[in-house]
């Protein structure tokens, strides 16, 4: 696990001393700010508020399509370089000839990405603080919503890490990740398109929008958590196998 910590710290340093994380943070916060502002003005103009909805539920739930769109932008950009860059520059050779296992390399890098993802979300906690000034905030809803976002991020970052390990080109990694993640997002939209049946159930099961809608109501659906977790673990497992396979290239 020594290797894990070393890789984790280096990856985190690399993410934050290069402009990438800062650019993503800025773009992300600008977009979130715009979404949040429009939701707030919308609620402010409403004459009477209903009981089961509020700006927070709208932000994390009903209107989560905007929020997920920004994730489809941010997550692939965050993961594209993680392995592709090391393979292009050759540093992967020094990394893999150190006494570390492929699993600790993959986990170290992935954990750094997940930490960065969490750090990028952290400033949005201010929105909750802002809302608290004017009304009551249901902390259960806030907690569940962030848990939902963490689950989606974990799955997206895992898939992105895998795509980055599949190619030496950051651009190809970016495009592949967008393709896969946007594809899964579109599959989720199928829930609103198809007739009731098995296919619609599948779409509903993988839908990130439905997940956020449930979580924003404070409903912690274990199936959602298991789904996110399985995608994450599968992605990391395959990535480890891919890294291992480079020895035989």
């Amino acid at each position: 696990m020594n290797g894990f910590l070393a890789v984790y710290r280096r990856e985190l340093l690399s993410l934050w001393v290069t402009p990438l994380a800062w650019v993503l943070l800025t773009v992300f916060l600008l977009l979130q700010g715009a979404i949040f502002y429009s939701i707030i003005t919308h609620f402010a103009s409403m004459s009477e508020a209903s009981v089961d909805t509020g700006p927070l539920q709208a932000y994390f739930g009903q209107e989560s399509i905007f929020l997920l769109m920004t994730l489809l932008l941010v997550c692939p950009a965050l993961t594209m370089r993680v392995f592709a860059e090391e393979r292009r520059s050759g540093t992967i050779e020094t990394l893999l000839t150190a006494p570390v296992t492929p699993a600790s390399v993959v986990l170290g890098k992935y954990s750094a990405l997940l930490t960065t993802y969490a750090l990028i979300w952290a400033p949005t906690l201010l929105y909750v603080v802002v809302l608290r000034k004017t009304g009551v905030v249901d902390w259960g809803v806030v907690g569940a919503s962030y848990l939902g976002l963490l689950g989606i991020g974990a799955a997206y970052l895992s898939l992105g890490t895998l795509m980055s390990a599949m190619t030496k080109s950051q651009l190809v990694a970016l495009l592949l990740t967008i393709f896969v993640e946007f594809g899964s997002f579109i599959l989720g939209v199928g829930e609103y398109i198809f007739e009731p049946g098995v296919f619609r159930d599948i779409c509903a099961h993988v839908s990130m929008m439905s997940q956020m809608e449930d979580f924003s109501k404070g409903i912690l659906d274990l199936r959602r958590v298991v789904f996110d977790g399985s995608v994450t673990l599968l992605g990391l497992f395959v990535t480890t196998r891919v890294v291992d396979s480079w020895r035989w290239g």
Binding site: N2, G3, L5, A6, V7, R9, R10, L13, S14, V17, T18, S89, G90, T91, E93, T94, L95, T97, A98, P99, V100
Partner: peptide
């Protein structure tokens, strides 16, 4: 390795600290 690949964004001491940990 051939051509001595390194992480360009790190300082020399940071890089060697990373390698020592690894």
């Amino acid at each position: 390795p051939e051509s001595a690949p390194l992480y360009p964004e790190m300082r020399v001491s940071e890089y060697l600290m990373f390698r020592a940990r690894l």
